[in-house]
């Protein structure tokens, strides 16, 4: 079975990687058609990845419940939430799962009154934790940390309307920090990431990188 676990996935990765690569450089209509077809396939794969992701998540939490691992109560909440949301989605306000998504009903109620407030709460809580972290850990222990701290203060005040009230130079200084040193560093990071992506892609296409095949 090594063929299905190793050789076949490697051959598929090599073939489609090469097709995707050459399609960018060969302006022939047949290659363009093939590329368009592959793009549609990728979108289908996204949908399958969603199913696989859901399965993995539920399996992980089932195991936690079975083992009664610390905090397994949260796993029960996850399962309950999944079952309720899935059932509401399938029922689709009485229209059934084959019809288009209804604008009302239980699923929309869950979205409006559970999911939305919970998401907003998670985001709002950040302000409290940032304030606590700012007070406790943001220390100018070294020259570099001192520079970072000074820049952070300038940007924090300069990017909000109150910065204009304090001094007209503050927003200008904040913009300079964002547009010159920040942009320079970001460019370097982006170039590095892009080169890394190229290198990793080549390693996968040529079968050097095999971590995605799993450990078995």
């Amino acid at each position: 079975m090594l063929f299905f676990k190793r050789q076949l996935p490697l051959a598929i990765a090599f073939f489609f990687g090469m097709v995707g690569f050459f399609a960018q450089y060969i302006p022939h209509h047949s290659f363009e058609a093939l590329y368009n077809e592959l793009i549609s396939w990728v979108r289908l794969l996204y949908a399958f990845a969603l199913i696989l992701g859901t399965y993995s998540l539920l399996r992980l939490h089932s195991k936690r419940i079975e083992r009664k691992a610390p905090g397994f109560g949260y796993s029960l909440v996850l399962w309950a939430g999944f079952i309720a949301t899935f059932a509401a989605g399938m029922y689709n306000d009485g229209r059934g799962f084959l019809a288009g998504q209804s604008d009302s009903g239980m699923l929309m109620w869950i979205y409006d009154y559970v999911f939305k407030p919970a998401g907003a709460t998670m985001f709002s809580v950040l302000a409290f934790f940032i304030a606590s972290a700012a007070y406790r850990t943001f220390r100018a222990r070294t020259t570099a940390a001192g520079m970072l701290l000074a820049s952070a203060i300038i940007v924090m005040i300069g990017r909000i309307p109150i910065g204009d009230m304090i001094s007209e130079h503050l927003p200008i200084l904040a913009s300079w920090l964002m547009e010159v040193p920040n942009a320079a560093v970001k460019r370097g990071i982006f170039l590095g990431v892009a080169l890394g992506v190229v290198a990793t892609s080549l390693r996968i296409i040529f079968g050097i990188e095999r971590a995605y095949l799993g450990g078995d």
């Binding site: 940032i130 304030a131 007070y135 406790r136 952070a152 203060i153 924090m156």
Partner: peptide, 16 residues
């Protein structure tokens, strides 16, 4: 937002 930003700056300065 402006008030919280100013508070954060004060926290950082006071903490230091």
């Amino acid at each position: 937002q402006s008030a919280i930003h100013m508070l954060l700056v004060l926290f950082v300065l006071f903490g230091n």
